[in-house]
Design a protein around this nucleic acid. Structure first.
Lengths: 297, 297
DNA sequence: TAAAAATACTCCATAGGTATTTTAT
DNA sequence: ATAAAATACCTATGGAGTATTTTTA
């Protein structure tokens, strides 16, 4: 008996023209996928794939079956979308991605709130950098991601949730304590400590400070904000700290946070999802929760 | 993850409005079907069925999901039909029904021939009376049936294969041996031995003899032609024997077969399949085999 | 109360994983 | 020789069966 799984695997083979890659795409091993394709061929009584040395080819029948399979899979996907739109937001499974410079500060407050207001929600969390999150979102491995905007991708829709102000974080010494507010110009002489490459926060901070990577006097890149702040506390340099991280990361007496002069630089925290995924209602409900947390620190 | 099985079970529930009957329709037990329906509701996050005392109702969402499910299942069915049309006839699985008054005479010759010419064919045989065969064919539990025509059903297509002549079978005594050929009128005084109710052969013989069941001088009905012929051999009466059964059933020296005068009465052996099932090529190929056997007795 | 669906459990088929072999260039 | 798919084998998930309980008109 023919199964949707077989059709999904065949569609992946059609996309990649390679059993191994198709298997990866489907999150299974190559033999598992091979077996399902063979079984589909057996069930239909048709050869669908020509196995060749490098890369494979679909037979004419294979192409036609792929066309029909895609249409069936699309209908199934539509059915799932219909169901998702019909049920209340934030119920059932939600695969949520979130970047490392947000997760540890927002989640401890957000998770209890979510559980309180949406007990039916089954969250599956993934924490990694923006680039991976976007890839996985577009691939359909995630449903919704919490990131710093903008993200620009034709298949994605986004929702702005709130602005997260930057503070200057420096060692609490007498020389600097005087200033109530600082401007970007005040930072130019300082050594700027940053996260390692790949973190969007690194790029945002560089952008705020109007510096390019090449003008940095250090190539050091930490893998967590916590590390950066320890360095700041010990006088190795300064950094910009997002407001949401202040409570957690700046409770060391040796750290001194100074706000910027108006207009204060910020990063925009937002949500993104596939346009085709019927997740807008979920995004809006999640946005409510997240702004609520923001409003009551 | 949503499966075609779940959609099939849901469609059955929609048809029957009853879990038990739906389960029967799907050839599974009620708990098995219940579990799948529950899982589908869980996956979609929607209640699809309202469980009530006698019979159940679909929710509004349920109706919509059924509509979409039916469309998906139809597409899958179309895909299977496409595959069947594309591959050579009589390859893969064929669920073949055949009536008891044909099976024992045709199959011993037909099966070796089929295996010889169509080694890829995987036959699943079912022997029962015409009524059941037609029901199972229409229900989709069989692919093709071998019966006596006509069968008249709007969803079925038929193919005539060959005419099977009737012989008069009587005890080999001197009184009757004289005649080379007989007419229906010659039978009127004889006790007619028949198969039990439900066998189409019984009705055909009655029809040939222009008798109605009410005019029979016996209500006896045998469950197999073999029994009838033993009775004939022992002088309990006469019967009409189809030519294809002659070789097997009339090799008793006490049996005497006499052909009819022209035009000889016959039964029409034929095939039937669902119009929608893309089995015409299979039927034609099988017809070839069956007529071939007929031609070389 | 009785009919029907849900639950509990057990078993088995099958999907998937790891390790290895076969195949084709 | 090597990349890629097929095969062998084992494990675990889950679908289905039987027996039973729960539910609701």
């Amino acid at each position: 008996m023919i199964t949707l799984r077989q059709l999904r695997y065949l569609a992946a083979v059609s996309e990649t023209r390679h059993f191994g890659q198709a298997a990866t795409l489907c999150h299974v091993t190559q033999p598992a996928l091979s077996m399902q394709i063979q079984e589909l061929e057996q069930d239909l009584g048709l050869q669908l794939v020509e196995r060749r040395r490098n890369s494979i080819a679909l037979t004419a029948d294979g192409e036609e079956v792929v066309r029909r399979a895609s249409s069936i899979l699309a209908s199934v996907s539509d059915l799932q979308d219909y169901a998702r739109r019909k049920r209340p937001a934030l119920t059932g499974l939600l695969r949520l991605g979130i970047i490392p410079s947000i997760a540890p500060y927002l989640l401890p407050k957000a998770l209890p709130e979510l559980h309180k207001h949406f007990p039916e929600l089954e969250l599956r969390l993934r924490e990694t950098q923006t680039k991976s999150l976007v890839d996985e979102l577009v691939r359909g491995d995630l449903d919704l991601i919490v990131i710093a905007l903008p993200v620009d991708h034709p298949e994605l829709e986004t929702l702005r949730v709130f602005e997260d102000r930057f503070f200057v974080a420096q060692q609490a010494c007498s020389a600097t304590r005087a200033k109530k507010r600082m401007s970007v110009a005040d930072l130019s002489s300082q050594r700027l400590l940053l996260l390692e490459e790949g973190h969007c926060l690194r790029d945002q901070v560089l952008s705020v400070c109007a510096r390019s990577a090449s003008t940095l006097d250090t190539t050091f890149g930490a893998s967590s904000l916590s590390t950066v702040m320890h360095l700041v506390a010990n006088g190795y340099g300064i950094t910009l700290l997002p407001e949401m991280a202040a409570e957690t990361e700046a409770n060391d007496a040796r750290i001194h946070l100074v706000p910027f002069c108006d207009p204060e630089p910020t990063r925009t925290i937002g949500l993104a999802w596939r346009k085709s995924s019927a997740r807008r209602a979920d995004a809006e409900a999640l946005s409510q929760i997240l702004s609520g947390i923001r409003a009551t620190p």
